[in-house]
Amino acid sequence: MLSWFKHKNYPFFWVEYLKKFKTSQPNTIENTRFVVFDTETTGLETSTDRLLSIGAISIFNNVIDVSDSFEVYLKQDEFKSETVEIHGILKDGNLLKLSEAEALEQFINYLGNAVLVAHHTAFDIEMINVALKRLNFPNLKNKSIDTGMLYKKLDGKKDTHFSLDILCNEFNIPKHDRHTSSGDAFITAIAFLKIVSKLKQERSVHYSDLFRTSNKKGLI
C-alpha cells in the first residue's frame, strides 16, 4: 500500500524509468544495452562522501557507441581537498556543474533499463543509491556486472583483487584520462569487450553467465 502511494508521487522521469522494466528484457549479449560507468567522489565512504562526477558510455552488439555517452559534474558542499589530486575536480572550477538532483535525473534518463557495468560495481552503485535516498528515491533497479568479477572468470585468475590499472596493463589499454569518470568508464568498456571476447574463446558464454559471481556456479 505504501509503495503504491509512493509510486504515485514520483516525478515523471522516475515513472518512465520504472516503466522500462515492465516489458520483457533482452536476454542475449548482443541485444542488451550495457551502460559502462564510473563515478568520481570526495572519498571512499559511501555514507558521508559525495558524488563529484558521473561518466558513462554504452555498448550495444559488442560496439562501444561514443555518441551514446554521458558525462556530468555535480555541485557539492561536501569537499575534501586531499582527494583533488586523484580526480582533479576543483570545488569552483570552470566545469559546468549541476545539482545532485538534476545530475541524477539526467543519469536515470540516460540509463534506462540498460545493464550497468563498472569496475567494482558495488561502490559506484552504492554511491548512486545513497544519493537517490537523500532525494527520497528507492534504489536503482538495473542488473549489474562487475568487470573485476568477470575478469576472475578467465582461466587462472581466481582469488585475487584486480584494480583497473592491472586490467589496463594486462589488456594493453592506454591509460588516458585515468581517474576521470568518463575516462575510466571508456577504459572499463574496452576491458569489458576484451574480457567477454576472451571468455568466449575459453568456453561458450551465455548471457546469464555474465552475472554470476563465481566459477563454481555452472560455469564449467
Binding site: G55, S69, L95, D177, S182, G183, A185
Partner: peptide, 10 residues
C-alpha cells in the same frame, strides 16, 4: 557539455 571521450578520440 564536456565530452572527455570524444575529445580523446579527436
Amino acid at each position: 557539455m564536456k565530452n572527455t571521450i570524444a575529445e580523446r578520440i579527436f
